[in-house]
Simulated scan of single mutants.
Amino acid sequence: MIAHMTDWIEHFRAAACGLAVAHVWRGHGSALLVELGALTSTTRRDGSPGEPQGEIGLMIEWSWRIEDGRSIVCGSWSDEDLWPPTFAHLLGRTVQNLSMFGRLQEVVLSLAGDLHVASFMTAEGDPAWTLFDRRGPRPVAVGSRSGVIAVER
């Protein structure tokens, strides 16, 4: 078991770097999900096909933005018509870095081509992101809770 916040950050940085963005999709509301590496198909409770999951995943429930080298391309408060072409532009991009910023940890996924996916909570409570590592027999999920990186149960 990884004991320290910096260990979890390094775990996900090492796991994500070099993987390609394989799937980007919209969850409930404005939730953004970025799937990295090899995809695995999923099935919903009703038996219909679900969204595929990557080896590593990033979910930002809300208050996210996608940046290029000079501006914010779109975000959770942007016109939703901007989302699909921007999501498509992320596909196939290789992860260059995964880092944290802010006193209450927010996440930035930096991709080839100077593109960045960042969480940026603007409401009370905790930042609303989760990282998933689905490579092993027991998937691991971590997020920012009460100012620290914590394992999700």
Rank of each mutant, 00 (worst) to 15 (best):
residue 139 P to V: 11
residue 139 P to R: 08
residue 110 S to Y: 01
residue 146 S to E: 15
residue 35 E to L: 00
residue 92 G to S: 03
residue 85 P to G: 08
residue 133 D to Q: 03
residue 28 H to L: 06
residue 83 W to K: 01
residue 97 N to V: 07
residue 19 L to Q: 13
residue 14 A to P: 04
residue 118 A to H: 11
residue 76 S to L: 02
residue 81 D to A: 13
residue 111 L to S: 09
residue 60 I to Y: 04
residue 139 P to D: 09
residue 42 T to V: 08
residue 14 A to W: 01
residue 28 H to F: 04
residue 38 A to P: 02
residue 79 D to H: 06
residue 37 G to K: 09
residue 37 G to M: 05
residue 140 V to Y: 02
residue 98 L to K: 12
residue 6 T to R: 15
residue 60 I to C: 05
residue 13 R to E: 10
residue 112 A to V: 03
residue 9 I to D: 03
residue 29 G to H: 11
residue 6 T to C: 04
residue 127 P to D: 03
residue 96 Q to Y: 03
residue 135 R to S: 03
residue 127 P to I: 01
residue 10 E to R: 15
residue 6 T to E: 12
residue 34 V to T: 12
residue 46 D to L: 06
residue 125 G to V: 10
residue 38 A to Q: 13
residue 16 A to H: 12
residue 131 L to E: 08
residue 123 A to R: 14
residue 19 L to D: 00
residue 52 P to K: 05
residue 129 W to M: 08
residue 102 G to I: 01
residue 128 A to K: 10
residue 131 L to K: 04
residue 121 M to Q: 12
residue 126 D to L: 08
residue 100 M to T: 14
residue 99 S to P: 04
residue 118 A to C: 14
residue 11 H to E: 10
residue 121 M to W: 00
residue 84 P to G: 08
residue 87 F to N: 13
residue 78 S to W: 01
residue 29 G to E: 12
residue 110 S to M: 04
residue 127 P to G: 00
residue 119 S to W: 01
residue 104 L to G: 03
residue 13 R to N: 13
residue 87 F to V: 04
residue 67 E to P: 00
residue 52 P to F: 13
residue 97 N to G: 11
residue 44 R to Q: 14
residue 54 G to N: 04
residue 24 V to C: 12
residue 83 W to T: 06
residue 81 D to M: 06
residue 114 D to K: 00
residue 75 G to M: 03
residue 104 L to T: 12
residue 14 A to C: 05
residue 90 L to G: 06
residue 52 P to E: 05
residue 42 T to P: 04
residue 121 M to N: 15
residue 121 M to A: 11
residue 139 P to S: 13
residue 20 A to N: 07
residue 39 L to F: 09
residue 128 A to F: 02
residue 34 V to W: 08
residue 108 V to C: 12
residue 115 L to H: 14
residue 137 P to R: 11
residue 113 G to I: 07
residue 79 D to M: 00
residue 84 P to L: 06
